[in-house]
Design a protein around this nucleic acid. Structure first.
Lengths: 242, 242
DNA sequence: AAACCTTAATTGTCCTACAAATGTGAGTCA
DNA sequence: TGACTCACATTTGTAGGACAATTAAGGTTT
């Protein structure tokens, strides 16, 4: 099989709606519009782009879904920045779990960020970082419920990535939060967090303290793969009577 | 006015489109639809929800923007999971200026993606990948102008990252394209591309062919830092002491 | 069986019309 | 003057119809 399952989705002919979205993006950029500014009315956009109102409206729906604009009747479209909440919102589609593909992709990404970056982490880590990690891990035990524990678990890994002192990486990690949270929660119970996750985190911290690169990479990789094992057992569509 | 005070907060009356989105969500949940399954046709959805086709289409646009469904003519709407791509895609609307820190952060990120991932790249690379890389690099010489060469340069690195077969990482790399292009282009001339970049790329490919991990990491790291050096010499923040 | 053609179903875009919301300004009154 | 009322105009929200573009499916021919 020569089929690459990655780029088979890239060859779609762009629809008029997509074109309009692109033109709106350029319009925002060219006019230097920023948060609080108004976009032209639908009618004006129709004339500017030579598209029908339906098309313009569908394009505007995309911007709204992205959290780029807020539209009110009579007032029109105002530029906002609710992208973060929109990003979180799209994962509130609880009905559908994360696909296996997405899951393994994200885990691979995390592996790169948290395991392969061992040199940078060891270079930059401070006592304060270590203290924070211990504290966050201890706090996880005191939380109540699976969700709170997962939140704290995510915070642990975020704090670890923060050691890289790289805002771009940290932002991307934050973007992936909804997905990672689901991955973390998948197939776990309070018991899992208290008897497995906690000690795996401690083992990782210990490896850092001992400046043991091999141990760190092994333990972190194992830790991440443990989550994957849970995922495979319960599957992405296990119906959970909550 | 009888309705006053209280909620200046976010208590917006939900539009019919929002209702339809919610109903679609429930429909997916109730029928247990999962990735690969088909949604009803627009016509059926209109009848089911008692809404007009425009309304259903706008709702569908939201799902598409969320990366929940993929729609093709004649075929209809298929459930997918491109939410990560969508979440990242919404940040292509960034109008914010690029700071010096961002540049170095991005370079650090690229270093992690392209240098530290050496094991995964060596594991997965195929002859087709190598042929593509050679072709892209050769094509760079035949382009005209600095911008076209930079585009091809970026394509080379994208193709390299694609070897990881990780959609999340590829999406992130695509997200950084505007910034990376600026980094690549900065302070370079046609001469630079033809006499430095080209040979650096070839050296990287040769290292892969020889399965020489050390050489690969050294050459790639040097290559990335060379670009950054150009940036620091002539870039907008050249004399900025940190 | 394979290649080609026809058909029908579905989405993509455009159009018009009206409803709903709301800022604007003229007009009124204290 | 100042504040209040209210009709009006503008803009977005929804509905419904028409046709184009695409393509899966079935039928026909070689």
């Amino acid at each position: 099989m020569n089929t690459l399952d990655i780029d088979d989705t890239d060859l779609e002919p762009r629809s008029v709606v997509d074109e309009v979205v692109e033109q709106m993006r350029m319009l925002i950029s060219e006019r230097g519009l920023t948060i609080g500014d108004q976009l032209p009315t639908e009618k004006e956009l129709c004339e500017t782009f030579g598209a029908s109102r339906n098309t313009v409206r569908e394009a505007m729906r995309i911007l709204k879904a992205y959290g780029i604009v807020k539209v009110r009747q009579k007032v029109g479209a105002t530029i906002v920045d609710n992208r973060m909440s929109s990003a979180l919102g799209m994962f509130s589609f609880n009905v559908m779990e994360i696909s296996r593909e997405t899951f393994s992709d994200i885990q691979g990404f995390r592996c790169l960020l948290e395991v392969s970056s061992v040199e940078e982490i060891f270079d930059r880590i401070t006592d304060e970082d270590l203290a924070d990690l211990r504290l966050i891990n201890a706090t996880m035990l005191e939380t109540e419920g699976v969700e709170a524990a997962a939140e704290q678990d995510f915070l642990f890994h975020t704090r670890l990535v923060r050691i890289l002192r790289n805002k771009a990486i940290l932002d991307v990690y934050g973007l992936m939060k909804p997905v990672i949270l689901r991955i973390i929660q998948n197939g776990k119970t309070r018991h899992t967090f208290e008897n497995e996750t906690y000690y795996e985190h401690e083992a990782v911290i210990d490896a850092i303290v001992a400046r043991d690169r091999i141990a760190y990479q092994y333990r972190m990789k194992t830790h991440l793969e443990t989550g994957y094992a849970h995922f495979r057992e319960t599957g992405p569509f296990a119906d959970d009577p909550t």
